[in-house]
């Protein structure tokens, strides 16, 4: 019975996680095209080392635009894998945040590995790697979350901006990380784990040890609420970087965007301040001034 309930809970959480993330990503992706809001350095610009842009060129519109996609990938990789920005600007936090993030990366990798084993891609080598992934990933997550929890509870600057739910979230991750270590150590070789997971997800009725059931339930809980939190920055960051601070493409290079902008000018405006003169379209509001003759 517990197995069935747990299986249902896991499925519910997975669906909520996927659906929630998709909805938020959809909201960001379908927001109307905005006015430019570049912030330098822009990683794909040839002058990125000094923060330069194509505006540094005389008659910039006549020059061939060079965009270094590889540099952009390296910049993102340094952010994601090394937490470069935190290292450079908030070193104290980095010592907690870096292991915490790497713990989560390793746990995601371990989960993907388990899925591979579930579909028959297992081998002794994979088993060793997964065990190591579970121990190290769980350990780093647990310790990193614990360190963040301590910092957010003792550092006045962080404490003021930390909510009870933020602390609860970190506690969930401390617990999840710790339980993961216990399972990786307690199930040598993790041999039973893939089969157990298959049974759980297919409502096969296999008996799952209590500590493992708890680990799964806690992990699923984390996935359940994640889309409602600021932790969606793992994909939101794509938009903040690529669609805002690094988005320096001139309009004439993007006719599709030009037509989207044209559509935006037809949106109705109903701001109430007198000087706006709402109740008209954006295009009309921008080209007329209340109290002055049309178009003057």
């Amino acid at each position: 019975m517990v197995g069935y309930l747990l299986g249902g809970w896991v499925w519910l959480c997975l669906v909520t996680f996927a659906g929630g993330c998709l909805l938020r990503a959809f909201k960001y992706a379908t927001a109307p095209v905005h006015l430019r809001w570049d912030l330098y350095p822009v990683a794909h610009e040839p002058g990125r080392d000094h923060g330069g842009s194509y505006f540094e060129q005389l008659e910039w519109w006549t020059k061939k635009r060079e965009k270094d996609h590889l540099a952009e990938i390296f910049a993102m990789a340094a952010e994601i894998l090394l937490l470069k920005g935190v290292w450079e600007n908030n070193r104290r936090l980095w010592w907690a945040s870096f292991p915490f993030h790497w713990g989560l990366y390793l746990l995601v990798g371990t989960t993907l590995g388990l899925m591979a084993v579930m579909v028959g891609l297992g081998s002794p080598f994979v088993t060793v790697v997964l065990t190591a992934g579970g121990v190290i990933g769980g350990g780093l997550t647990c310790l990193g979350a614990l360190a963040l929890l301590v910092m957010r509870s003792t550092d006045q600057k962080l404490r003021l901006y930390t909510t009870p739910l933020d602390r609860a979230n970190l506690l969930v991750l401390v617990l999840f990380g710790g339980l993961t270590v216990a399972i990786a150590v307690g199930f040598p070789g993790m041999n039973d784990v893939p089969a157990g997971l298959v049974s759980l997800l297919s409502f096969g009725g296999a008996t799952i040890p209590a500590v493992w059931a708890l680990q799964i339930a806690v992990g699923a809980l984390f996935l359940f609420y994640l889309p409602l939190t600021r932790m969606v920055h793992f994909f939101a960051k794509y938009f903040t970087y690529h669609q805002v601070r690094w988005d320096d493409q001139p309009i004439e290079e993007n006719p599709k965007m030009a037509s989207r902008l044209q559509a935006a000018l037809a949106f109705g405006v109903d701001w109430s301040a007198d000087h706006v003169g709402g109740g008209r379209t954006w295009g009309e509001v921008a080209t007329t001034i209340p109290g002055m003759e049309e178009g003057e």
Binding site: K27, Y28, L93, R230, A236, T240
Partner: peptide, 12 residues
């Protein structure tokens, strides 16, 4: 909305 919804309050 990206800035409104994704600040992790790290105070960096």
């Amino acid at each position: 909305i990206l800035s409104l919804e994704n600040c992790v309050k790290c105070q960096t």
